[in-house]
Design a protein around this nucleic acid. Structure first.
Lengths: 188, 188
DNA sequence: GTCTATATTTCGATAGAC
DNA sequence: GTCTATCGAAATATAGAC
């Protein structure tokens, strides 16, 4: 892997684990096994590097989530599959976490990909909920937009609960909680 | 207000707005209009001051939320009242936000009050859900523990969505989404 | 492209006078 | 209790040699 690649991947790792404010250029360089000069040769600074890293994480997420949500099964089955898929629960959402970083929120170049990804996810789920309602699989009284917001919020908030409780199970409980409310069959 | 009080209140404000890693002693002192010496006279350092600030925020939250959840109305009405109460949505949850701070999570003294508060909230809501189920107000198929986790997660995740979208409405949508799933009457 | 040297600020705290 | 001085380390770059 090229030095440039290692810098990007190291940044992705650190943004996920520690966020933007708490990640220093020095730490990135050490993890990437790259010198000071290399980093500033390839990128104008911490901000640009973070933007490239966030963009890549956002793209990967859209690709993998998009595939699951467009996969086989009924709308509710696809939503369940997505919500129950394996995750590094204790690490949290690599995109959602950035909304709690003051320096990310203060930097338009960094918020943009975060906003786009989360909004995309809500829209994608709203479309699926609408489909489920049209098919008669979901309660016809459900509003697709608010229901989708609740689903995404449960995911994001599930990470918060898991970290607070220091137990991934808290995340799973939140997920099973919404799924039950949606009328999905229990897994046990 | 005493200097000590101003230091605590300033820290509470900054922890809420920027988190722990991104808050420096210097900033706290400036906001509190206190000198270096004052801060280190009243507290051993940033960590102890943060602990006192977090404890106070946690206590206030338990008091106000506890009052709402023990207030008048049926279980579902009380849950709705709590979820729909006025909030500084764009600032997020002063307690939940701390779970995304790497230095808070690495410091047992600081995680403890966060963990206790969020766990308390889940238990409190689980008891209310159980009550609603027993009364026949809520779907008897609902599991109190997972349902409560989903409710708290929706709250916490709603803040994430609102910040990402730069729009408090995203939070409201998530809230109305779960409430509809719970069978609460729509507000409009 | 990568390295070393240097620079400016800030961080988080200590020391000691008043 | 509060103030000023000082400290060693880290943050975030820039400069210029190789």
């Amino acid at each position: 892997m090229s030095t440039r690649e290692r810098l990007i991947e190291s940044t992705r790792t650190l943004l996920w684990e520690r966020g933007y404010v708490a990640t220093s250029p020095k730490t990135i360089q050490q993890l990437a096994d790259a010198g000071q000069g290399s980093m500033y040769h390839h990128f104008s600074g911490k901000e640009e590097l973070a933007r490239v890293a966030i963009d890549r994480t956002a793209e990967e997420m859209r690709a993998s989530v998009g595939a699951l949500l467009s996969g086989p099964g009924t709308p509710l089955e696809r939503i369940s599959t997505y919500l129950r898929r394996e995750r590094e629960v204790m690490k949290g959402c690599p995109i959602g976490r950035l909304t709690q970083d003051p320096d990310v929120m203060a930097t338009p170049m960094l918020v943009a990909p975060v906003a786009e990804t989360l909004n995309w996810l809500r829209e994608r789920l709203a479309a699926l909920v609408a489909e489920g309602v049209a098919d008669g699989e979901l309660n016809p009284a459900l509003d697709p937009v608010t229901t989708a917001a609740a689903i995404v919020a449960t995911l994001q908030g599930g990470y918060v609960l898991a970290r607070a409780a220091n137990d991934p199970q808290a995340f799973q409980q939140a997920i099973e909680g919404v799924l039950a409310l949606l009328g999905a069959p229990s897994v046990r």
